[in-house]
Amino acid sequence: MYNSDTPVRAELPSSRQLVRSTILAAVSAAVLLVAVVLPAEYGIDPTGIGRVLRMTEMGDIKQQLAAEAAADAAAAATAAPAPASASASAKAAGPTLGMASANASQPTASAASKVQWRDETPFTLTPGEGIEIKLKMAAGGKVPYSWAVEGGSVNFDTHGDAPGKSVSYEKGRGVSSDEGVLTAEFTGNHGWFWRNRGQADVKVILRTRGDYTDITKVK
Rank of each mutant, 00 (worst) to 15 (best):
V218K: 06
P13C: 09
T183M: 07
E179G: 15
K91M: 13
E132K: 08
D45E: 07
I215D: 01
G128I: 14
T22V: 01
N189L: 09
Y42G: 00
I215K: 13
A102K: 03
T213N: 09
L53S: 06
A102S: 13
S176C: 02
K219S: 14
S89D: 03
K134W: 04
T124N: 04
Q63E: 15
P95G: 09
M58Y: 14
S176A: 12
N155T: 12
P127V: 03
D5A: 13
V37W: 03
R54C: 09
Q116I: 07
S15P: 06
D5M: 11
G198A: 06
E57D: 14
V37R: 07
A35I: 00
S21K: 15
L135R: 04
V36K: 04
A162L: 12
V218P: 04
V36L: 11
A35R: 02
M55V: 10
F186I: 02
L18K: 07
Y212M: 02
E150A: 04
R9L: 12
A10P: 04
Q17A: 08
M1S: 06
E179T: 09
T78I: 15
S4W: 10
Y169P: 00
L18R: 14
A67L: 12
A162Y: 13
L53M: 11
R9H: 08
N103C: 07
A40H: 12
R51K: 06
R16H: 11
A88G: 03
N155P: 00
D161Y: 12
S177D: 05
A104D: 10
A67F: 14
S28F: 11
Q63L: 06
Q64T: 07
D178V: 11
E41A: 01
E150K: 05
A100S: 09
P107A: 12
G164A: 05
V167H: 05
D157L: 14
D60K: 05
V154Y: 03
Y145A: 07
T158A: 10
S105G: 07
A77W: 11
K219A: 11
K171M: 03
V8K: 07
A10D: 15
A90W: 12
N196A: 03
D72W: 03
Q106K: 14
L65Y: 13
A86H: 13
M55T: 14
R16F: 05
T22P: 01
R195A: 06
S146F: 13
K219Q: 11
S176I: 10
T126S: 06
A80D: 12
Y212N: 00
W117D: 06
Q199S: 15
S146L: 03
A76N: 05
S28D: 13
D211W: 05
R173Y: 12
S153P: 01
L97T: 05
L12E: 08
I131V: 09
E129C: 02
Y212Q: 01
K217R: 13
T183L: 13
L182K: 10
H159P: 00
A200S: 15
L65E: 15
D60W: 07
